[in-house]
């Protein structure tokens, strides 16, 4: 069936099967491979994107459900050639090693800071509790998100 989805502000129209998952639509149909595809069971959180501004696990959302809606992926975080503060935070605080979980972490971190600009460590850990990182032990991810919060507060 025909779907029309706005991804990172750009409209895409595609003919797809209803069973196509949003993560594969983004990666295979649109070539937006920044969104990673991991456990396929909504556990690991590497596939998190924002659907109408709310983070969801895109391996458990059908692409047809996004018809007429807005999706934001990690590719949409950068504005005017400048990385989003959460991306800068991950750079500054070494918030990743292998990078597999990073796109999902960034999308949830952005959502957290949009709702709560000054989260404490517990709130950050709660927000990312549905996302697995096997490299950092989460310590540097928490620092990265705190760095972004402080950066945004200082502007």
């Amino acid at each position: 069936m025909r779907v029309s989805v706005t991804v990172n502000g750009q409209n895409y129209v595609r003919e797809i099967e209803p069973r196509l998952l949003l993560v594969h639509f983004l990666r295979d149909e649109l070539g937006l491979t920044g969104t990673h595809w991991g456990c396929d069971t909504s556990n690991c959180g590497v596939c998190v994107v924002q659907l109408d501004g709310v983070p969801v696990k895109s391996c458990t959302v059908l692409a047809v459900m996004a018809d007429g809606h807005e999706v934001t992926t990690v590719e949409g975080l950068e504005k005017d050639g400048e990385l989003d503060p959460v991306q800068q935070g991950f750079v500054q605080c070494h918030g990743l090693q292998c990078g597999f979980c990073t796109p999902g972490m960034l999308m949830t971190a952005r959502w957290l800071l949009d709702r709560n600009p000054d989260p404490d460590e517990g709130e950050i850990r709660e927000a990312i509790s549905g996302q697995l990182c096997r490299c950092t032990g989460y310590e540097n991810i928490v620092r990265s998100i705190r760095w972004a919060a402080e950066k945004e507060a200082s502007v």
Binding site: V54, E126, Q131
Partner: peptide, 9 residues
């Protein structure tokens, strides 16, 4: 119940 991202959906 699950985690915040799953609870969004």
């Amino acid at each position: 119940i699950a985690d915040p991202v799953v609870r969004n959906r």
